[in-house]
Each structure stands twice: as C-alpha cells, then as structure tokens.
Computed example of a mutant assay.
Amino acid sequence: MQLSPQLWQQIIAATQSQPTWHERLSRWYHTQSNPTIHLVILREPYLSRILSGQKRIESRFAHDRRPPFGRVAVGDILLLKGAGGPLAGLALATEVISRPLSAGEIHEIRRAYEHDLAIADPDFWSAHATARYVTLVWIDDVWPLPPLPLPRRDRRGWVIVQR
C-alpha cells in the first residue's frame, strides 16, 4: 500500500511539536531508508487504549503467516488507524515476538501478557484458541495525530506501507 505525498505531508506536519517523531518520519520520507512502516487497523476500545498508554502490546493471532508475522521488527513505525476511521496515531515497535503456536500456548501468552494486551472481549481467547501463529508487538513512544482521513478498499488489518 502506498500513501499519497499529500497525506505524508499532513502526517509529518502533525508531528512538528514532537521533534523525535518529526525527524524520524521526515528522514524516512525523504531518504526512504529503514525502518519499515506498518498501517495497523484497530477496533475500539483497543485504539483508544493504545493512545492512552493502557495497551502496551498489540497482538495478532492467525491461521497462516500473513503480516505482521515475520515482517515487523524492533524500530519499525506503526501508523495507527481506527477501523473505518481516520489515522489516529503513531507508535514505535520496541520488542517483537513472531512464532508458530503449539497447542495450549495461547494460555501461556494470556497469563504472561494479559495486562499489557488490555483485551476487553471476554470471548477473545476462546475465539483465537485454534490460531497457529502469533505476533506480539510491544509499543512505545505513542503519539496521537489529529484525525487524518485515509480511505481504504481492502479488509486487511495490517498492511506494510510501500515507498
């Protein structure tokens, strides 16, 4: 997925009061160097929980090796977008685990990370009990953006942004 130059300019302009993010995004946009940028689609209340700092780990459970499995790394930039809504924030990946799941491991993940995952849905764990792969992304340096429209035509929940 590619973002328009106009949207990039809006995103970069929205970070002018936060020098670290402004420099990080400007450098990426103008030099097209690493890190990888990911568009992360989030439903509520998870988007708000990330923006408030309550949710510190984003999880993706899957039956196949779709992104972000094996595609997100420490230092990558996450563009946070509400499902059906605008871009709402930025975050930095500070730790990542991507691995296959064996039977019963989802319970270990729940025990170890439940607080930082901030899962609100009581049926979440049973709905993902048959997942074969997991990606856990620790997020930090969260920066809210003013709502920036980003129309999308697909239903993927995680998309790697191309240059």
Rank of each mutant, 00 (worst) to 15 (best):
F69V: 06
T130G: 02
R156L: 06
S26G: 01
E114T: 08
F124A: 01
I57A: 08
H38M: 09
R99S: 06
P19R: 06
A62H: 06
T130K: 08
T130C: 04
D116Y: 03
W138S: 04
V96C: 08
H30W: 13
D154Q: 03
R156H: 13
D123E: 14
V72L: 03
Y113P: 03
L80D: 11
V159E: 12
D123Q: 14
E44V: 08
I109L: 12
R49T: 08
V74S: 11
E114W: 05
P86E: 04
H30L: 05
N34Q: 05
W143S: 14
T20Q: 13
G82Q: 15
F124P: 00
L145F: 13
N34F: 03
V159L: 11
S33L: 04
T20V: 04
I97Q: 09
E95V: 00
L117T: 06
S98Y: 13
L47Y: 00
W21C: 10
I77K: 00
I57M: 09
A127W: 06
S126Y: 00
F69N: 12
S26Q: 03
P45E: 09
A127R: 04
P19F: 02
L87T: 05
K55E: 07
R65E: 15
V72I: 11
L87K: 02
L92P: 01
S59C: 07
D76W: 03
R49S: 14
L90I: 09
V96S: 10
P67D: 14
I106K: 00
P144V: 05
A129W: 01
D116E: 15
P146R: 01
S102G: 08
I119E: 11
R156P: 02
F69S: 09
G70L: 07
G75E: 09
F61L: 06
R99W: 11
I57G: 02
V137W: 01
S102M: 10
P19W: 07
A103T: 11
A103Q: 14
I109E: 05
